[in-house]
Design a protein around this nucleic acid. Structure first.
Length: 582
RNA sequence: GCGCCUGUGGCCCAACGGAUAGGGCAGCAGCCUCCGAAGCUGCUGGUGCAGGUUCAAUUCCUGCCAGGCGCACCA
């Protein structure tokens, strides 16, 4: 029986007692009011509850007195329930806390489970929800920045966690391949191209000024000069050019790239760069959704017509509005401007409608903090489309503040002044980089000191964890005992304090996964791993695994094998490698 | 001006309203004839300010102070 199940059964029992005897209703144990908590000190047992304290004020009785009554009742009930072998004793401590102590036998059974598969405590498949997770979705106007790196790391890990929990899931990147920013990209490249030809240009401040723009312009410039590489290069190659080229080099040399050519080429090349960066960072998307194709499909008009038929769209001041206030938004929002063009919201509503149409019933979006104000209107749109508000979850991924030599690095995409994901990969490495991004709560600021991460990489927490894994691998390599034999170990020989702590730490992987799923935040996996590694290192320091006593040796091997299995599985969720040697 | 987030030892962060506020870095003192010292053990040191609610407040409420972010017919 899993740890979660034990807690569920206990909760049921308690709730029943509270209802029957004390007539305690919702305020006490409904919704947020979790009945059970995990004590921070091992001395207080494995699970505890403070209901007696909470009831005391209402019933005007002493909390310990209430606790006594509850505990006596629980003993009777547990004796005839499936919890019988899992719960060893129940204590009353302090002002009236009720502490549950799980039996060693129960933890041995969990260890057995941990070593039985490479994906311990994996959730059973839930078929009731198909989830689409959309993240990164950076405009293809430049290489990915550190901020996108964090989104990539968090999004990918979150997907791994949800998949592990049993959800059917798709990773999607929304590609903003048209609109103002893209047009400016085209103009920026075209201007640099003119510059290369020796023309005098004035480069507007709102254009992209990064070096990579000049590189792209050079590529186009050379393609003209050398007359190469244009035929199969995709949408930006135009028919008339092919004809021209058949005539020979000189004619090609006179080819002039239009702004549209520059734009299309830029988007295509930058997208290649982005895909490569993500791949090198270990993040793979299942789908790339093009805004331009959405625009062409007619789905935007269709969706707006649908909303209009429902009465959520109206005309005013020669613009078209979405009545988002009907769903709790602060004010109504424009979807078609008075000049006839769409705001960003229009394609976005259509895009989300399309997600639903494709059969996803749970949408998770990872957005930057600048989109915070956007959540209300998107949720309104989801409701207007006839879905539950809960069908959309928006996870705000806070920015990472970068430090270099102790100073904040200011960043601007437009000026091309920013630290790229590529730099993080090159300088810090994928393992340390991904782990670093996941070390803080996703919605809280993250300080990332590049120099420090680089210089002190050996003291990065990720190595602490990987080291535990490598240490175990080394012991197992020297063990001289077959894996099958380890799996049949007599675990009851594990009774030292550090052995039991490690045993419990391993079992708590399941609770950790549950929290990550509920909070939609994989960061707790990183803190869990640190605790697990610490538990192992302590055990290692005080007890020798490869002792002469073969049964004990085998039991300890099963313990560290369980630890290794869980470390590897958890690191995999974070996208960090679990080395056998380092 | 309106809204959101954050104030915890010298630095970076933890703590469903619960039990003695935890950990890392930096500093100091120890631990390898023995499975990997990228490890372990010990010491020093903290809840921005003022009220309120509660048996119990770092957590919830109010005000103030300090920092960050968002407030478009921009994307």
């Amino acid at each position: 029986m899993s740890l979660n199940k034990v807690e569920n059964l206990l909760t049921e029992l308690l709730a029943r007692k509270l209802n029957e005897t004390f007539n305690a209703q919702e305020p006490l144990f409904g919704l947020q009011g979790q009945l059970l908590e995990s004590p921070k000190d091992e001395a207080f047992g494995d699970i505890s509850t403070s209901v007696a304290l909470k009831l005391a004020a209402i019933l005007k009785r002493s909390p310990r007195d209430i606790a006594k009554e509850i505990v006596a009742w629980l003993y009777k009930e547990i004796a005839v329930s499936s919890l019988k072998t899992s719960i060893e004793k129940i204590d009353i401590a302090g002002a009236g806390f009720i502490n549950f102590y799980l039996s060693k036998e129960y933890f041995y059974s969990l260890l057995k489970e941990a070593i039985s598969s490479e994906s311990p405590f994996m959730g059973q498949a839930k078929k009731d929800r198909r989830v689409l997770v959309e993240f990164v979705s950076a405009n293809p106007t430049g290489p990915l920045s550190v901020a996108h790196g964090r989104q990539a790391a968090v999004g990918d890990a979150l997907c791994n966690v949800l998949k592990y929990a049993g959800y059917e899931l798709t990773r999607e990147y929304y590609l903003n391949d048209e609109g103002n920013q893209i047009n400016i990209l085209g103009k920026s490249i075209a201007l640099r191209l003119q510059e290369l030809k020796g023309e005098r240009i004035e480069f507007p401040e709102d254009h992209y000024q990064g070096e990579y723009i000049i590189d792209l312009a050079k590529e186009l410039y050379q393609a003209r000069d050398e007359g190469r590489g244009t035929r199969d290069e995709g949408p930006w190659t135009r028919d008339e050019e092919r004809e021209t080229r058949d005539d020979g080099r000189e004619t090609i040399g006179e080819r002039r790239w239009t702004i549209d050519d520059c734009r299309d080429y830029g988007v295509k090349r930058i997208l290649e760069i982005i895909k490569k960066e993500l791949e090198d960072f270990g993040v793979r998307f299942d789908a790339w959704y093009s805004q331009a194709s959405l625009q062409k499909s007619g789905k935007i008009e269709e969706t707006l017509a649908l909303l209009r038929s429902k009465g959520f769209i109206y005309d005013q001041d020669s613009a078209v509005w979405f009545a988002s206030t009907k769903f709790g938004d602060d004010k109504d929002r424009v979807v078609i401007k008075s000049d006839g063009s769409y705001t960003y919201l229009a394609p976005d509503i259509a895009y989300h409608q399309d997600k639903f149409r494709r059969g996803f019933d749970w949408l998770v979006n990872l957005w930057g903090p600048d989109h915070h104000g956007y959540i209300g209107r998107m949720k309104a749109a989801v409701e207007a489309l006839g879905r539950e508000k809960e069908a959309l979850n928006v996870v705000i991924v806070q920015l990472a503040t970068l430090y270099k030599d102790g100073k904040v690095v200011s960043m601007s995409t437009r000026r091309g002044e920013y630290v790229t994901l590529r730099q993080v990969i090159d300088e810090v490495g994928v393992d340390a980089g991904r782990f670093f991004f996941l070390m803080r709560r996703t919605d809280s600021h993250l300080d990332f000191d590049l120099e420090l991460a680089k210089k002190q990489s050996s003291e990065n927490p990720v190595y602490y964890i990987q080291y535990a894994h490598a240490r175990i691998a080394n012991i197992l390599a020297h063990a001289g005992i077959a894996p099958a034999q380890i799996k049949n170990a007599d675990m009851s020989l594990l009774k030292e304090k550090e052995e039991l702590s490690l045993l419990k730490a391993i079992a708590h992987f399941e609770s950790c996964l549950k929290i990550a799923e509920i909070q939609l935040d994989p960061y707790c996996v990183s803190t869990y791993l640190q605790a697990l590694a610490e538990s192992f290192h302590r055990f290692y320091d005080l007890h020798r695994v490869l002792v002469d006593d073969v049964p004990l040796k085998t039991a300890r091997l099963s313990l560290i094998l369980g630890c290794k299995t869980v470390i590897a599985a958890a690191l995999k969720l974070l996208g960090v490698s679990a080395p056998e040697k380092m």
